[in-house]
Computed example of a mutant assay.
Amino acid sequence: MSIQSTTPQPLDPTTLPDHDNVPGNAYAYCVRLTQPLFMQTGRMIAYYPAPGGQGIRFEPLMATSLTGMVAERFSSPLYSRDWVVANGSAHVILGDRGFDINSYDLDQGNLTVRAANLLAFDASLELKESIIPGFLTLIGTGKFLASSSGPVIFVEPPIRVDPEALVGWADCPAPSLHFDAGWMGHFLGAARGALLGTRSGEERQYDFTGAGTVLLQSSERMMEDPQVLRRLEGEVDGLGTGQLQRLQQVIQSRLMQQQQ
């Protein structure tokens, strides 16, 4: 018996889409760059310069040539160090740690998305920080890219969702937190939350009401958000000795869980 391997057809500018996933690959997305694009750092994996073009310029948000546009379009100082503006003419291939990537179109819309999932967005959109930590809101008309752990599911409120499965929500009020009284009152559930510092979707959910659309990923595998650590670091100075010791216990418990 012989085993034959097939080599995928190599990509080139003529076989790449202008705005779509790389053929047969849900984990890579190709953008035909013709206008400024806000992009999270570390997500560009390759690009083909347009014929006769000079390639792409990746400029930090605080660059002198960008300050006016950034002030108008990117209202989130907390996340500004993790983003650049891509200018030029090229086919740009984006990837995000092996997660699924999809594009979404907003038409005079209002969508809030988890910051760690947002990869890129057109300069025609305006970005603001959500009142819920770890989320960003896009307003206006344009296209944006977001990643997810598995395919995205679209659902309508009223619904309660596991926070770790939530990607974002569009055109509906921000959620409120719901704690399951039965789960919280159960000895094992209470012990796990109090002693190990862990939460689950059975214990705590986001409660959505009203009209709109909620985006869920088909997995509870959350992506790391560097701003969560920076936010915590900023709060440490305000903690007393007992609180710091408690925080140390929680961190040690979480490390032990992840090492199992």
Results as ranks from 00 to 15, higher is better:
Glu224Tyr: 03
Ala120Trp: 05
Val113Ala: 06
Ala28Asp: 07
Asn21Pro: 07
Ala28Phe: 04
Glu202Phe: 12
Phe208Asn: 00
Gly68Asn: 09
Glu164Ser: 15
Ile153Phe: 01
Val113Met: 02
Leu66Tyr: 10
Thr34Trp: 02
Met256Asp: 14
Gly240Thr: 12
Arg43Tyr: 06
Val161Phe: 05
Leu111Asp: 08
Ser218Gln: 02
Pro51Met: 05
Pro8Cys: 06
Leu195Gln: 14
Glu202Pro: 14
Arg192Asn: 13
Pro163Gly: 10
Tyr29Pro: 07
Leu136Asp: 13
Ser176Ile: 01
Phe74Val: 01
Leu106Tyr: 05
Leu33Met: 08
Val70Ser: 02
Ser124Tyr: 01
Gly240Ile: 14
Tyr27Arg: 07
Leu94Trp: 02
Thr213Tyr: 00
Gln260Phe: 08
Glu203Pro: 09
Arg57Val: 09
Trp83Leu: 04
Leu127Gly: 14
Gly142Ala: 10
Leu196Ala: 15
Met223Ile: 14
Gln249Tyr: 02
Leu37Pro: 15
Pro60Thr: 11
Leu111Gly: 13
Gln260Arg: 11
Tyr104Glu: 04
Leu244Gly: 08
Ser200Glu: 07
Asp171Trp: 05
Leu111Asn: 03
Phe58Asn: 04
Gln257Phe: 10
Gly193His: 13
Pro51Cys: 04
Gln243Glu: 15
Gly197Cys: 10
Phe58Ile: 06
Pro133Ile: 13
Glu224Pro: 08
Gln243Lys: 10
Pro158Thr: 08
Asp180Phe: 10
Met62Ile: 13
Leu37Thr: 09
Ser219Phe: 00
Gln227Gly: 01
Trp83Arg: 04
Leu244Met: 12
Pro157Gly: 01
Thr209Trp: 01
Thr15Trp: 02
Val214Thr: 11
Ala174Asn: 11
Asp237Cys: 13
Arg254His: 15
Leu78Trp: 03
Asp180Asn: 13
Leu247Ala: 10
Gln108Asp: 00
Phe58Tyr: 06
Leu106Cys: 07
Tyr104Leu: 02
Leu177Ser: 03
Ser75Tyr: 02
Leu216Tyr: 00
Ala191Ser: 06
Leu239Val: 09
Ser2Thr: 04
Pro173Ala: 07
Gly88Ile: 12
Gly55Met: 09
Phe144Gln: 04
